[in-house]
Design a protein around this nucleic acid. Sequence first.
DNA 1: ACTGGGGCTAACC
DNA 2: GGGTTAGCCCCAG
Length: 114
Amino acid sequence: MTPPRGSDTHQRILAVVRRIPRGRVATYGQVALLAGLPRQARLVGYALHALTPASAVPWHRVINAQGRVSPRAGHSAADTTQRIRLAAEGVRFDASGRTSLKRYRWQPAPSRSP
DNA sequence: ACTGGGGCTAACC
DNA sequence: GGGTTAGCCCCAG
C-alpha cells in the first residue's frame, strides 16, 4: 500500500506540525516520520515554506536536528521571528542560538515513564 | 525526461 | 562542539 502523493502529503505534514504543543519543538525528520514519510525531512521544509502567515500552523516549533533554527534562503528575518516566538513559549536558546532538543523535543506518545 | 538544488540527517574527522 | 562528506527524496526550471 503506497501512500498517495501530492498536496495530500503536504497536508499530512502540516497536520503533524499543528499537533506540536506549545513550548515544545520537533525536528524536520521527526515531523516527517510522524507524518508517515520517513527520510523526507526536506519535504517538511518545503511544506513549511509554502505556508502563509495566516495559517494556524506553529511552523516555528519545527527546527533541525542540531537544535537550531534552519537558516532559509533569502528570508533571514523569518529565522529571527522563529526564535522570538519560541522564546515567548519558554524555549530558551544559548549564545550559539541553539536549544536543548533533549529537553524540548516533542514526544507525541510516551508509552511509559522511565 | 534530466539536472540542479534544497528551512535535512547521520557519519566521520 | 564544529566543519566536511555522503545519502536521502522531492520540487522547480
